[in-house]
Each structure stands twice: as C-alpha cells, then as structure tokens.
Design a protein around this nucleic acid. Sequence first.
DNA 1: AAAAAAATTAATCAAATGATTAAATAATTC
DNA 2: GAATTATTTAATCATTTGATTAATTTTTTT
Lengths: 233, 233
Amino acid sequence: MFKPFIATYLCVAKMKTAEKHSIKISAEEKIKCSARELFTQKGFAATKTRDIAEKAGINLALLNYYFRSKQKLYELIMEENMIAFRTGIVRLFGDTAMEMEEKIEKIVEYYIDAFLANRDLPAFIISIIHTHQHTPVPDNKFYISIGNAQKVFLEQIKKHLQKKGINAIHPAHVITNLMSLIFFPFTSSTMLKSRAGLNENDFIILMQERKKLIPIWIMSMMETTINSKNIKK
Amino acid sequence: MFKPFIATYLCVAKMKTAEKHSIKISAEEKIKCSARELFTQKGFAATKTRDIAEKAGINLALLNYYFRSKQKLYELIMEENMIAFRTGIVRLFGDTAMEMEEKIEKIVEYYIDAFLANRDLPAFIISIIHTHQHTPVPDNKFYISIGNAQKVFLEQIKKHLQKKGINAIHPAHVITNLMSLIFFPFTSSTMLKSRAGLNENDFIILMQERKKLIPIWIMSMMETTINSKNIKK
DNA sequence: AAAAAAATTAATCAAATGATTAAATAATTC
DNA sequence: GAATTATTTAATCATTTGATTAATTTTTTT
C-alpha cells in the first residue's frame, strides 16, 4: 500500500500562536519555512531576503549565516520539495504488476492527497518544469524526469487504447487530461472558486470527490474514438 | 458568428529578419513587444528594464520616455491582453439564445484558437487571477470578473444536470473540467511534451484535435452520477 | 532653410537589495 | 567557572536596478 504524501517539514508560519510556544524552533527552521512560503507564492525574484527575514522574525544576516546565499536557500527548498514528492510517484508509475485502471486510481489519489496537504506544491512542480530555463538553478537540478517509470505507464495506456482500434484517441490526450484534471484546480483555485461560486470548504469537498471521479472520467475518455464526425470540418 | 481571437498587436521579436526590414517599427512598439514576452515568461519582478531595452534594441531611457515607468508599461500590456481576450468571451458566455452544448463547443474553440495564437495568454490570465494579490497592480484593475455572463452559462449547466436527477455531479466539476482541459495543456506544454514524448508540431495537432474532443468529453462527464459505489469509502 | 518638436543617447542619481564584517551574546565543552 | 564554540546583532559595503537629466540627433512644421 502506498503511503499518502506527507510534508516532511513543519511550517511555523502556518502555526497557531499557541502551538508556536509549545515547540522551540530553530532560526534555521524558521527561515526555511518562511522562505518556502514566499518563494512559492511570489517566485524567486519577487521574494526579497529582507521579506524572508522579517516573516521569520530573524535578523537578515542569519539567512546568509545558515544558507550562504538566497540562491542556495532556494535550491535547498526546491530539492526538499521535489524529493519528498517524487519518492512515491515514481514507484507508482513504474509498477509493472499493477493494472492500468487501478494505477490511475492510485495516481489520482496520491496527487490530490499531496496537493491538499501542501497547497504550494502544484505551482512549484509546474514552475520548475515550465520555467526551468527562467529560474536561476544550476542546469535541471530539479527537473527530475520521471523517466522510465513514466514509460511503463504510457505503454499500459497505449496497449489499452489499441484494443479500441485505429480510431482511438492519442495516448498523449490521456496523459494530458489526467494531469489537467488533477493539477489545474489547485493552480487556479481562486479562478474556479469565483467562476463556480465556491468557498474554501466547498473546494476541499470537491477535491475529495474528484479522487473517485477523475478515474471514471479518464476511463470513459478512453472510449472516445476519433472519426470524421468528430474531427473533420 | 464569433470571430476567432486575433492578437491586436504585432510582435517584432517573433518576426523573421526579412519581415522586420519590410516594416518600420517604432521604438515604442519594440519595447511593448519585448516587454510583453519577458513579463509573461519571467514575471514582473524577474524582468529587468535593462533586459527589455536590450531585447528591443533600444536605449534604456526610451522605456521611461514612452511609458513613464516599468509599472505603467506592465499595466498597459496587461490591460491590452485582457481587453483583447475578454471581448469575445463575455458575449459567448452570456448568450441566452445559444444551447448549452453548442456553447461549450464555441467556448472551447474560442479559447484554444486564442491560446494557439498567443501562447503567453493562458499563463497571463491565470497569473492575473491567481496572484493578483502578489502582482503589484492597482486593485483588481485587471481582475475582470466575467460576472453575469458566467452566471448565464452556469445556469444552463445546472439545468442540464437536473435532468440527470439528484445524483448528478456538482456543476462546479463541469466548469472545473472544462477550464482544466482547455488551460492546462498550454500552461504546462513543456511538462506534457516531456511526459508524452511530443514535439511542438505534435502539440499543435493535439490542440486542434482537442477543439472537437473536449466538448465530447465534457458532455460525457455530465452523464456521470455520484453514488455509493463512486464516493463512499 | 530656419525653427520647433520629437526621438534618442550617454552619463548619472537614488533607492533597493544581496551579502559581509566585526562585535556582542548565548550555549557548550573542558 | 574559564575557554571554546555557536548564535545573533547592528552597521556597512557593493551591486543591481528603476528612473532622471542634459545634451545630441532626427524629424516635422513653418
């Protein structure tokens, strides 16, 4: 059984005041926590070292004392996030024993649980992949291709679609739709809330529902065939 | 009939050298064009006025001469983008005469055509809506709610779902999925290309296919019902 | 062509910002 | 408890970066 994603760090900034006093948190931890939040929300360039220091309630010099530079701090946080997330997902994608349908269910569950637990993560992942040419990180240090594991899953989809015959949709649509339905609601929750008139609680309920619904939708999409009726002018 | 979205500006930076010589382009236009590209790709903070000037091949002072400040330039570009995009979409959503199914087809077509013509637009729209608290713009100047038009469309969906009975999915899922399937492939084309092993040309072909496929998928999703089999543990 | 206006440039300013230093304080070791 | 090490601070440096100025060139108007 796959364990759900659990953030491997604790975030002081998000704690209630009462909690804060019960635990003694090192300055180092405070900095990392504040930095993680600011970097995710505003990006590397827009996040100022002074903002981080202020949010963490520490002296500016401590940031350099512990992490050498803003850049190094950023890289450290990125690495932690990616490692924490990647651990489970690679195993899932690459599992050759698991049937495609069950795998889809597990993938959806894993992602949504991870994103509900760490709401900054989806934006993080996308920004790393999308803008790894714009973000000042030593060559794709964090652009961890899911690589081989990904291929296993893709092959399973291809095989399934082949049964549908020559008019089945392209496997890329399946991957695209799966990732779209999982990621997008999180990266644009503000937009969706406003468009569909939801509050934060409604949103969480919907996301829970989606863990069951997305696999159903994906399976039914794979039934779609492309023919003259669909595609031609 | 609704005209497809056409970028209302011409972008010199993207022109072939031959084209550049045939038209004389004002410094003002060059700046706007370069700025648009950089702002979208890297964000406001990461884009330096010197980068814009260099890319446009003009003197740094001209930026302030024409646009007063980096901030003003940013706002101008944002406004142009939003106005150009919004024009058609509000009319579409709000059309009370058009049937829901046809409307979905038209909406998908409109968005995808717009995004294919201006690949920066989806990220722009999302960033405006998502981070309008982080981007330094005078209070939601660009956060144009589709407002009433949106409500018309939402009502049409609700009505359609009511026919399916009490177990039909929440209308928010329909809006969510529609927007997800349209937007996400564009905002994360890099990710999808790598995950599904596509090149740029494959990508465009897939997006064209999606204009026909997404409405089919959305309609079939609306057939899904939530029952104990789907939701309960 | 002279005068006026517009466009462009190089040089420079001022504030923001990442980073360092040297001194002070707290914690740990011996 | 003295010595040593680790942590924290205030002050400061150096670079980046948005913006301005004053002079120069180009274009337009008269």
